[in-house]
Amino acid sequence: MPAIVKISNLSKSYRRDSIRIPVLENINLEVEAGDFLALMGPSGSGKTTLLNMIGGIDKPSAGDVFVGDVPIHRLSDAALATWRARHVGFVFQFYNLMPVLTAFENVELPLLLTRLSKTERRKHVELALSIVGLQDRINHYPRQLSGGQEQRVAIARALVTDPTLILADEPTGDLDKNSAEEVMTLLSQLNSQHGKTIIVVTHDPRAADKARSHRNLDKGELA
């Protein structure tokens, strides 16, 4: 399988009070299309930062990040936003659903950035919600759902645009054991049955078990 993500010589550091704090050092990574990769490592190892670079919501201090043929490290802020809308689906630890929107409206949100008609959007949203098993919760607000259900809505939102990548940052971090198992199974099915390329950041070994490949980050370096 060809590599969909190619990262070479990537470094990231922050400045705090004129002190340079390195987060990632000389990272080289390739992720194949259709892979389900678990990025693991202890807190502060830089795994979320690396995921953010791949997702185009953060920029490297040095090095290249290619997704497909696109050098996303070179894109402007506005171009990155457009690129994210087309190519990336995010799943966050705390779901990050809009509390004032229903499950349907939350999932529809990224589709508003496309040229799909209202009817087409409805079809896509209903399909995404049925894939995550929440077709009967379509008009529920996030406060009316359990944590596991909220995360499944978030997964539906991530996959509704049929993105190149689904990036999940600690998707089970706020869930109980059963819900975590359901969410990881769901991600695994998206990978195996729908061919989605998924990168998950987690420090939970049980969650990582569902992934096909694993990489460990420690103190900013890939093991």
């Binding site: 919501i57 936003a81 995010f90």
Partner: peptide
């Protein structure tokens, strides 16, 4: 989150 989803500034 909106920005991450692709909404512009």
């Amino acid at each position: 989150t909106m920005r991450a989803l692709g909404f512009q500034r």
